[in-house]
């Protein structure tokens, strides 16, 4: 009995396997549709006229493609009393993200270098304290930070937001660099010291040139975090200095006038484009950043 089934199984098995394989591919394709559907709906809605949105179907392709909604979203949509579109807020986010990403990455690299290669008593405790700082719900620092920014004269300003993002970003950036530098043999530092190189010289000439992959991971992680941030943006900005996420939310939830869904969708895509762009062109590094914090490195 046993060897009978054995001899039959190849042909039967391969047919069953073929069907299973088909089911598998169909399921995978259906899930791909599920993930793509909102993006598809956003893009098609943004290219339709309001008239067509009201009469047509959610998932239909636009009968007539128009870029009016995109123009309005970029330079005419109202975020409250002002109607300048997303444009000024887009640049706010750029002005905010560039220095915040650069500073937090640089500080993280130096911290990681110290913790991984220049161990002193208490360094591990400091690292643990910083690591824990990554996990706090930011609500718990919102009130005192608002007061501090007010006292420093930075309330509602972009430099104030840069400051906040750097402070609460260094936990993660330090973690990234520390985990990367820890795998570099300590002999390297010892040998360089024997040759007379000092602390900064070793960092500059030996560690930094080795760091390109982790710099890319950290920059992408920080950029995504800061660009997509809403909580700090909405808490610590005022009219005129708001980042793009806050402006997008104001456009979508403004109650004045006719609800322009096509403008909302165009605005949402504009707000998403920079991080989507990063994801498409540097996806590998993006995923490495995502998993670095959660999988033992």
């Amino acid at each position: 009995m046993a060897d009978l089934t054995y001899s039959q199984s190849p042909s039967k098995g391969s047919f069953g396997k073929l069907i299973l394989r088909w089911i598998l591919y169909i399921l995978l394709a259906l899930f791909a549709l599920y993930y793509l559907m909102p993006l598809f709906v956003m893009v098609t809605t943004s290219l339709k006229s309001l008239e067509e949105i009201r009469t047509g179907s959610l998932i239909a392709l636009p009968r007539e493609i128009t870029f009016d909604a995109w123009k309005t979203a970029w330079s005419g949509a109202c975020t409250g009393i002002q109607c300048e579109g997303l444009q000024p807020y887009f640049w706010n986010s750029v002005l905010l993200a560039v220095p915040a990403v650069a500073l937090s990455t640089l500080i993280g690299a130096l911290n990681g270098y110290v913790i991984a290669q220049w161990q002193f008593r208490g360094a591990n405790l400091i690292f643990s304290l910083m690591l824990f700082g990554c996990f706090i719900p930011f609500q718990v620092v919102l009130l005192p930070m608002a007061r501090l920014l007010g006292m420093m004269g930075l309330a509602g300003s972009i430099p104030g937001l840069v400051f906040v993002h750097v402070i609460y970003g260094i936990g993660f950036t330090t973690l990234f660099f520390r985990n990367y530098y820890v795998s570099i043999p300590a002999e390297l530092v010892k040998a360089a010291k024997v040759d007379g190189a000092n602390f900064f010289r070793i960092f500059w000439s030996i560690f930094l040139p080795l760091s390109l992959p982790i710099i890319v991971v950290t920059v992408i992680w920080q950029f995504t975090q800061i660009w997509n941030d809403f909580l700090f943006g909405v808490s610590f900005s005022q009219a005129g200095t708001q980042p793009i996420t806050v402006a997008l939310n104001n456009i979508v939830n403004s109650t004045t006038g006719v609800k322009e869904y096509n403008v909302d969708m165009a605005a949402a895509i504009i707000a998403a484009l920079p991080t989507l762009f990063v994801y498409v062109f540097a996806g590998k590094y993006f995923i490495r950043g995502l998993t670095a914090g959660s999988v033992k490195g």
Partner: peptide
Amino acid sequence: TIYLYPMALSMIVTGTAWKWILNPGL
């Protein structure tokens, strides 16, 4: 790549998109 791209989006973008998809009227 397709399964993971939503993670690159801001929650505000995700919320805006789903608000539109789920609104009963349209």
